[in-house]
Structures are given as C-alpha cells and as structure tokens.
C-alpha cells in the first residue's frame, strides 16, 4: 500500500474520503473486465485533489465510486465517516444529495428550466419547500456573477455561464465535497480558467474539491495529483 503524500497542515481528524482496496469489475457476459484493481485513496477535508489519467485508465470508474453513483465490487469506501460500500440505491441517493456536489464536463443542466430552478432542484430532493428553495438558490448564482441570468434557460447561456450555473447547483446544498468531472473540458481557455479560478476560490474557503481530468495542465493547478493507470494508482 503506497501512502499518498498529504499536505501536512491537513493531517488532522479523519479523511473525508477513504478508499481501501477498492476494486470494480464489470461483467459483460462471460468476460470480466477489471476497471479498478485495489485502489487506496484518502482525501482530507479542505484538500484540492486532481485525479489524472488517460481514457480507459479507470479514472471515470473511480469518480463514479467516489461520487456514490456506483458501488465497489470489493473493498471499502468511507465518505464523511460513513461506510457506503454496501448502501442501497436510496442510501447512495441520500449521500449524493447531502454530501456531494457534482460539476460535469457537459454541465448537465435540466433543459427548458431556468437557471434559478436548476440550482434549486437539489433542494427539492432534500424536501425543502419551494419558496425557500428559490430563495436559497439565488445566493450561489449571485455570487458567481449570474444575478442577472436567474430566469435564463440553459440554451440561452454561454458554455462558461452554464458551467457556473452547474457550480452554483453543486454549492446550493453546502456539500462537504465538490466532485468536478472534466469541468473545463467543453470550455474555451478563458472560460476554463475562470471555472478553475472559481474552484480555487471555493477551496480557499475550505471546501474539499476532487477534480477528475486527463489534462496535466489542469491537474497541475491542484494541490495534489493522483495518477491512475490501468485501474491502479501509480503515484
């Protein structure tokens, strides 16, 4: 087991994310394809970690497991102190709702739905009333400079603006972890840098960020890189 180097000032308490010997095997008919083969990852509160790897390296599988969209075939995964390895679908949905904020490469905003409604939607699944939802959704949008775009639908926004709406949506539930999957992949350089700046700003405020990317340049901006290759962590 290779210990992952940590920023010394974060070596307190328990890790936010703790993967131990996690494997994930996809069964396609007779064939068994291992995507992850025994991975250990620790991410501490307040860290900005980049998971970097080429396509087919297993980084997407790793992200799905960290994001509680998938379960490991073997091994344990603890997030915020809870062992979610054996959670059922509803249990995983609860973790996604309370603990994780997603930012996707292709934004994944709800079509034909205003920016404000989009940002308010995660609160719907926490059982928050409509009035409060819309009220709480305003703050992150205004903070990301979209205060004048509340009623715009995704199709009326630029890529950079859409990604900022997506970040606002990830922030609205005040999650412990922001999980960003290639957040700059579809953006031009300027918008990409803007998004990275926002993520850094959020990290400076103490938010834990895990960034998945295949670009070394993007990964270089994180405090720490985890390299994935052939389903294993190489450094």
């Amino acid at each position: 087991m290779t210990a992952v180097p940590l920023a010394p000032e974060l070596l307190v308490g328990t890790p936010l994310i703790e993967l131990r010997g996690v494997t994930r095997v996809y069964s396609t008919g007779r064939l068994e394809v291992p995507a992850l083969r025994g991975v250990d990852v620790d991410v501490w509160p307040g860290e900005f970690v980049a998971i970097i790897g080429h396509s087919g390296s297993g980084k997407t599988t790793l992200m799905n497991i960290i994001g509680c969209l998938d379960r490991p075939t073997d091994g344990t995964y603890r997030i915020a102190g809870e062992d979610v390895s054996s959670f059922d679908d509803d249990g995983l949905a609860r973790i996604r709702s309370r603990t994780i904020g997603f930012v996707f490469q292709n934004y994944n905003l709800l079509p034909r739905t205003s920016a404000l409604e989009n940002v308010a939607t995660p609160l719907l699944y926490q059982g928050v009333g409509r009035r409060e939802r819309l009220e709480r959704a305003k703050a992150p949008l205004e903070r990301l400079g979209l205060g004048d775009r509340l009623t715009h639908e995704p199709s009326e926004l630029s890529g950079g603006q859409q990604q900022r709406v997506a970040i606002a949506r990830a922030l609205v539930t005040e999650p412990a972890l922001i999980l960003a999957d290639e957040p700059t992949g579809n953006l031009d350089t300027a918008s990409g840098e803007e998004v990275m700046a926002i993520l850094h700003e959020l990290n400076d405020e103490g938010r834990t960020i895990v960034l998945i990317t295949h670009e070394a340049e993007v990964a270089a901006k994180a405090q720490r890189q985890i390299h994935v290759r052939d389903g294993m962590i190489v450094s």
Partner: peptide, 11 residues
C-alpha cells in the same frame, strides 16, 4: 440521470 446524480431517489 441528472436528477438522480443531484440526489433524487428512485421514488
């Protein structure tokens, strides 16, 4: 898929 990712349960 989006709704599920941001916390919607099956029900």
């Amino acid at each position: 898929g989006i709704r599920k990712a941001i916390g919607a349960r099956g029900r």
